[in-house]
């Protein structure tokens, strides 16, 4: 059922009716769309394989999308207002990176985009975010496991931002100028994310017995997923240099736990997607 045109004389009119303006449809996906790559030349350079480039951008985009969602789950729940705002800002940066990367993937290889019902107003990056099954997501498991406490989030963000920043510094000279531009922009954002996580890591490690206990528990719990994260980003020795620097000033030993075996996803991703995708899937035409 599509949304009724608001009638100001109707005593049952909703206070939200005004939000729709004159656009009575497509509300689930915003009232208007812009292409995040409008005007950008998305021709794939001839020396690159378009399908491979799309798959790579999807993986980078999915990591950002999934961790962005996990971070946004802290909204109104963080230990204090400043960190609530900080985590929301970091989530927003990652969402922006995800949007650009998913749009780049779709432009490089349109066959990656799920088919939607005729007349659906959903843009390609939203189709990729909301209409793929967990099995089709290409993110690493590090970003999908459920949030623990704040210390767990700090440890995860330190590991992720360190690995991704090192990779984006390299990708800034990638043969695809679109991916290179997205990476160069992301470098500036990830620098802030890594510093934020690094400071909190040190603070919690050198804080109270309780904060240190929680940090070590978070780090040890995540470490089995570090190898997969490092592999996905071709992490070189520069990542270990940074992590060892943080561990040293924090008085923390590198965890000695075996990498998690297997591949694919944990159950946590399908649970997360069920919540993230439910509205879009219930209303694929953006109308009710």
């Amino acid at each position: 059922m599509s949304h009724q045109t608001p009638d100001p004389n109707d005593e049952h009119g909703s206070v939200y009716d005004g939000l729709l303006g004159t656009d009575t449809s497509q509300w689930a996906f915003g009232t208007d769309f812009e292409d995040p790559l409008a005007g950008v030349d998305t021709t794939v350079p001839s020396e690159l394989d378009a399908a491979e480039l799309a798959a790579y951008c999807l993986a980078l985009g999915d990591d950002a999308l999934v961790l962005s969602h996990r971070l946004s789950e802290w909204c109104s729940n963080a230990p204090d207002l400043e960190d609530d705002i900080a985590l929301a800002n970091i989530a927003l940066d990652l969402l922006g990176q995800a949007r650009l990367l998913l749009a780049r993937a779709a432009a490089a290889d349109p066959s990656v985009v799920p088919t939607l019902p005729d007349g659906s107003p959903v843009p390609v990056e939203d189709a990729l975010a909301f209409f793929r099954e967990a099995v089709d997501f290409r993110n690493v498991r590090m970003v999908e496991v459920a949030n623990g406490d704040f210390a767990h989030t700090v440890a995860r963000l330190l590991l992720f931002a360190t690995v991704r920043l090192a990779a984006f510094e390299r990708l800034a000279t990638h043969a695809d100028p679109v991916l290179a531009a997205i990476a160069a922009k992301g470098v500036k954002e990830l620098t802030y994310h890594r510093d934020y996580a690094g400071r909190w890591f040190l603070t919690l490690a050198q804080g109270t017995e309780e904060s240190r206990r929680r940090l070590l528990a978070g780090l040890t719990g995540l470490w089995p997923l570090q190898a997969e994260l490092a592999r996905a980003y071709d992490a070189g020795p520069e990542v270990d240099v940074v992590l060892d620097q943080v561990f040293a000033v924090s008085g923390v030993e590198r965890p000695d736990v075996a990498p998690m075996t297997g591949r694919g996803h944990t159950e946590a991703l399908s649970r997360m997607l069920a919540e993230m995708q439910v509205v879009a899937r219930a209303h694929p035409r953006g109308q009710w």
């Binding site: 995040p36 531009a181 922009k185």
Partner: peptide, 24 residues
């Protein structure tokens, strides 16, 4: 983008807005 299109339309232009990602 909306504000640019709106103001340029008022000034008598047919406007479109494009994005540049580089340099950041």
């Amino acid at each position: 983008r909306d504000d640019l299109v709106h103001r340029l339309t008022e000034a008598g232009y047919a406007a479109q807005v494009e994005i540049a990602l580089s340099p950041a």
